[in-house]
């Protein structure tokens, strides 16, 4: 089965561009416009190894989304992709015990950094 990634972001442009780049890397990419949608799809049987999640989402927050997906699929790796400022993100993640998750800041001006992170997960497996 090919490696699959789910990107959760409420901005269609971000989803499209990330998906394009990662698909060009021959990865299987799914996208969701909200946390609710992401959970619905995973609950419905979508199998992904990695979730790239924005923190500030309309509706359910990114953090809540991660916690819920983790309950549904404990093996999932998470990468945080956020436009918020580093320090406030670090504080929030620390509070909910997710501070060990890798954080990529928007805009990703160097996509190869994200790709190597993804690669590291696959190689690890």
């Amino acid at each position: 089965m090919p490696e699959a990634i789910l990107i959760v972001d409420d901005e269609q442009g971000v989803l499209d561009n990330l998906a394009t780049y990662l698909e060009d890397e021959d990865l299987v990419v799914y996208t969701a416009r909200s946390g609710e949608e992401a959970i619905r799809r995973i609950d419905a049987g979508l199998n992904v190894q990695i979730c790239i999640v924005d923190l500030r989402l309309r509706g359910m927050s990114g953090i809540e989304t991660i916690v819920k997906i983790r309950n549904l699929a404990p093996q999932t790796h998470f990468i945080i992709h956020t436009g918020s400022e580093d320090k406030s993100v670090a504080t929030v993640l620390q509070r909910v015990g997710l501070d060990n998750l890798p954080v990529f800041r928007k805009p990703l001006t160097n996509m190869s950094a994200l790709v190597s992170k993804l690669q590291a997960y696959y190689d690890h497996k």
């Binding site: 901005e11 442009g13 971000v14 499209d16 561009n17 990330l18 394009t20 780049y21 956020t82 436009g83 918020s84 800041r105 928007k106 805009p107 990703l108 001006t109 996509m111």
Partner: peptide
């Protein structure tokens, strides 16, 4: 940062 993201990754 969202639109900047679109520009940059684009």
């Amino acid at each position: 940062n969202n639109p900047l993201s679109v520009i940059s990754v684009g």
